[in-house]
Write a protein that binds this DNA or RNA. Sequence first.
DNA 1: CCAGCCGTTCGACTATCCTGAATTTTAAAT
DNA 2: ATTTAAAATTCAGGATAGTCGAACGGCTGG
Lengths: 255, 255
Amino acid sequence: MPTDNSPKTLRTTATSIEILKQLEAIDGARVSEIAERMDKPKSTIHGHLATLKQEQFVIKEGDFYFIGPELLRLGNQVRTREPAFVLARQFTERLFEETRLRSIFTVEMGGKAVFLHTASGSKMGWSHEQLGNRLFLHNTAVGKAILAELPEPRIEQIIDRWGLPQETENTTTDREALFEELERVRDQGYAVNRAENFNELYAIGVAATRRSGDVIGGFSVTGPAHSVTGEDRKAELAHTVKDIVSEFELELALA
Amino acid sequence: MPTDNSPKTLRTTATSIEILKQLEAIDGARVSEIAERMDKPKSTIHGHLATLKQEQFVIKEGDFYFIGPELLRLGNQVRTREPAFVLARQFTERLFEETRLRSIFTVEMGGKAVFLHTASGSKMGWSHEQLGNRLFLHNTAVGKAILAELPEPRIEQIIDRWGLPQETENTTTDREALFEELERVRDQGYAVNRAENFNELYAIGVAATRRSGDVIGGFSVTGPAHSVTGEDRKAELAHTVKDIVSEFELELALA
DNA sequence: CCAGCCGTTCGACTATCCTGAATTTTAAAT
DNA sequence: ATTTAAAATTCAGGATAGTCGAACGGCTGG
């Protein structure tokens, strides 16, 4: 009776997943705690947890349940599905070595940019850059770099699905303006994010493609806007990213 | 009616998970393919996939379903749960830099060693060293290093749960012998795996503990047995690993 | 243009999930 | 030790909701 949002969807599986999300939020919880939060009887939660436990989707330590290793293993399959994704890891790290800026590798899934690799030295990244997180394509550097390489109908499709939501005052919300920018991206060979999804952030992104032409994903470097200043510094950075991507594409082609 | 292995366990959730595992095995599948493999009607599978899709546990591309980004995100929470785990990543990489041997960081979950970080340069690791995979504690270097730091009742508990299965002819299957070895590990400050779970592999593992004394996890380096020869080479390696772990513990204490 | 295959929808049946109460276990407090 | 309380787990009945098979419609390839 609650939210009958979509067509025939399985409530049982949905509850199991909801429990997993609760376990993620509050870190390691007991049966009653979850039961209370979800406003469901303890016995119900218990049943779900028992099932998830037997699959190692959660593990139990004393009376506390935690997200389990099998979920990590399955989820990571996303990062190892294609050899190109695996190879991208070391290039993400090299990108960081050379720029000393937070470096990431993302791929397009369902019209969004999904983080597959990050490299940032000691600092533990911001939460929105956790692996598996999704960002929009229209207001990020990698996103625009990837968009620029997609066939036009696909671009349309993605815009139709997600729209062009405004996240800062710099976000491009106009369809025409976006297409013009993508054209510029294609010319330059890289895309720029000038605080379009988070204030004070500047990023440069470049898409990686196969010889066939279809895109694999995108690399980018991000830094505080005030620390990345001067046109030559920016040009130099763009050059570095493009170089790394070229090497990546080359090594992939040879393998 | 098929396998009523455990007590009250939810069949619906179990099927959903089974579907995810199928998706992992054959990479990206269509409804009928999974339906056939699981010997269930297409409509049933369709329902599950619809639910999983709405939670982004799978994504759909054309008629193919793949494991989705939300699963990656949730699973990775295991690696970011504790700040110590996050910090361990860069030390795993430093370990690789210094030894040029495949380096890993694992933690103990449910009596097994779970891979949280790996570093191995370009080579894409073996499948059994994928993140989230679980190895025994009694026949691995990290495993024994971790065991050696656990309170005795806990060790007993773990052995009772998993036994001491033999995986190569070098595996220690005798309880007494294992305890003697753990004593040696405590003396030396490191543990050795002499092809005890895979032939031809040699590994050195060291456990990392908090100042309170309880263990965080373990680091180890692994190489082909024939490439790690000579007592001094081995001693040198052990020294390197112990050093890295010390630094790790120190930095953690300071933070 | 036709034929087959596949994904999706739909309604009825009934398996099974949910629930609240009973039971056991654990932990705390006196 | 003894008692109390709270939490985890088990259980069985009843109603919900997942399963199933058939039918529809869209796509692809011959």
